[in-house]
Design a protein around this nucleic acid. Structure first.
Lengths: 174, 174
DNA sequence: TCTTGTCAACTAACCGGTTGGTTGCCAAGG
DNA sequence: CCTTGGCAACCAACCGGTTAGTTGACAAGA
């Protein structure tokens, strides 16, 4: 047997991602996560403290992955929406995780890091609006939320497509 | 004690609405529903069959309430979006219920009645597009989904407002 | 030997669902 | 009008199985 703390944590996080995405927080089973990771349930409590803390860790990782994979391009918001769509399509667990988080935990309990990243993006859009590169008939924060939620829309209804997302944002910033 | 089947079912449905909206399907507790309704747990199984069937019944009722309260006005989609927003604001449990349903049950398990109502609305928008009363740069079904999800957006982020919903739809159909 | 990652076994609480029996309602018979 | 018997509505207690979380012993590496 190999004893590798980091490898065990990583396998636990992978298994937890699948379990939480499939069943949510209340529906997830700690035993299933341990079994899927090929290790014992006690490791979860040793490394992460509790089921909820494990969930938070998993969600945090997924969110930072999305942020890394999809930098904001204020001058090309339709393209940004399209790339966000691609990221979500490649990483389908995140939207389920985030959905469960929003429903099961309080509406807004965003981490400091996320609030900061959000503020940075709003500032970038504001600047683009000042320079006239982006129309100013929506506020910068409004616009960011609009674009983000537009790209999510495609995963909330069966008929929506990447093309629809891009075209909608094009119209919104026209 | 009053013995009234319909009254008991109604109290059970009310209690279940609150419980499911608060905790989802997996997180809801049958005992809590019975306690809140002031009757015995066995009644749930006598009248509704199971926890899941009770959830389905509650969701069905809420959806039909929304449909009744908010008829589609194809010639005034921004107004429709605003009125949909108002309905959701007045009936905050539905969006939580629908969210849990989408996550916990399969993506696709819409009822026949709902699919029918959807098709009717799509047809109404198509007609308005043929008459030139609504721009045709989006398909009718795309447009309906866009408008519906726009009105939901306002409840997914803290900063969105009714005004933003209406303005966004205005821009989309301009 | 001593530290530390690992796990089987355990527990106490909980959960969805069932059951056997009780109670209020109402209508038919007297 | 008053019994009374049948039945629908109701409930306390229970059941088998499951759950998150704990712990004491062991084994691997230093």
């Amino acid at each position: 047997m190999v004893r590798d703390k980091e490898a065990t944590k990583s396998k636990l996080l992978d298994a937890a991602l699948a379990e939480f995405a499939a069943h949510g927080i209340a529906g997830a089973r700690v035993d299933r996560i341990a079994a899927k990771a090929g290790c014992n349930k006690a490791m979860i409590y040793a490394y992460f403290g509790s089921k909820e803390e494990l969930f938070d860790e998993v969600l945090k990782i997924q969110i930072s992955l999305v942020h890394e994979a999809t930098p904001l391009t204020p001058d090309d918001l339709p393209g940004f929406a399209g790339r966000l769509y691609d990221t979500y399509a490649r990483q389908p667990e995140l939207l389920r995780l985030a959905g469960y988080h929003r429903l099961e935990s309080g509406f807004e309990e965003i981490s400091k890091a996320e609030a900061e990243a959000h503020a940075l993006k709003v500032a970038a859009i504001e600047e683009a609006q000042r320079d006239g590169r982006v129309p100013a008939d929506f506020g910068a924060e409004e616009l960011l939320n609009l674009v983000v939620h537009m790209s999510i829309l495609a995963f909330s209804t069966p008929i929506a497509s990447r093309d629809l997302v891009v075209r909608s944002v094009e119209k919104l910033v026209s």
